[in-house]
Structure formats: C-alpha cells, structure tokens
C-alpha cells in the first residue's frame, strides 16, 4: 500500500516535470526522458523520506541521481544536461515551504499578541530555513555531477581530437 502510494506520487512528479519542460520549450525528443528522470527523482526522494531521512537530504539524493543520469541522457538524446536536469528537479523545489514562509512573514506584520507572534516567528523561520537548504541541496545536487564530469568531458574531447589528427 505504501509502495503503491510512493509509486503513484513519483508518477505524478514525472507529470509535473513534463509540465515545466513544455513551459521551457524543450526539444520534443527529450520529453519522455524528462518524465522518467522526474519520476525517478521523486521515487528516490519519497522512499528516502519513508525511511525517515530528512527532507533536505532526501531532496539532495534525488537531485544528485537526476544530475548523474542527465549527463548520460545528454549523450543519448543529444542535448545539454541542463535541459534534462532542471525540469525534472523542479517538482522538488520547495514551493510549499516558500508559500508558508511568505504567509508567515505577512502575518508577522499584523500580530499584536506576543505569544502568537513568537509562535508564528518560529514557524516562519523553520519554513524559511527548510526552503533555503532544500534549494541549496537541489542546486548542488544538480551541479556536482556536472562539475565533476565537465573536466572529464573536456579532456575526453581533447583526447578524441588528437587521436583523430593522428589517424
């Protein structure tokens, strides 16, 4: 039952990724891979959260896997990695926490009671911190594989070029 729940959520995460992909006008040949990547990222994130790993680390794991596979996909589908990684990571962007934080900030302008003020302040800071760290972990998760392989791919291409010249 839980497995089914996680799977259905991942399926919908993939659909959300496609929505953003269309909004960003990606080439048609990449759409199906973006759905797969979005669903895979969701699957990893939701399973990690099921095993009581915090949402920040879970998002980081999902984003890293997406980043690594999007480089493979870039070779297969002949488009740069960011075309795959950004739309499929966006369903994990913490919009809900950002929404809560903004509502909290707005509420803070009008609360008079000290206790209620403190309570709202605590919740707002908590939501804001979660949002910020999830965002950073998403950005780094997507960027780290790119940073790691960028050097490699440049070297590789140079290597290829010298080989071609020799041949």
């Amino acid at each position: 039952m839980i497995l089914l729940d996680i799977l259905s959520k991942s399926f919908w995460a993939g659909i959300a990724a496609i929505g953003f992909a269309i909004l960003f006008n990606v080439p048609r040949r990449t759409i199906f891979s973006i759905w797969g990547l979005g669903a895979l990222g969701g699957l990893i994130k939701f399973s990690a959260m099921y095993f009581e790993i915090g949402i920040v680390l879970a998002s980081f794991m999902g984003a890293t896997v997406i980043g690594i596979i999007s480089i493979k996909m870039a070779h297969l589908r002949k488009s740069p990695p960011l075309v795959f990684s950004i739309p499929s990571v966006i369903p994990m962007v913490p919009g809900f926490f950002a929404y809560k934080m903004m509502l909290g900030l707005i509420a803070l302008t009008s609360i008079e009671n000290t206790d209620a003020y403190l309570q709202t302040l605590i919740e707002t800071v908590n939501n804001g911190a979660k949002m910020m760290f999830i965002l950073i972990s998403l950005g780094i998760g997507v960027a780290i594989p790119m940073l790691l392989t960028r050097k490699e791919s440049i070297k590789k291409s140079k290597f290829n070029k010298t080989k071609k010249v020799v041949a």
Partner: peptide, 18 residues
Amino acid sequence: LVVLGLVGLAGAAFCNIF
C-alpha cells in the same frame, strides 16, 4: 493549448503529491 493543458496537469500533479 498544449502548454496550458500540460502545465495545468502539472498543477494537478503537485496537488496529488501534497
């Protein structure tokens, strides 16, 4: 129409996830 429909589906998908 495709953009509107698919982004709408994405909104529904977010709702499902939450």
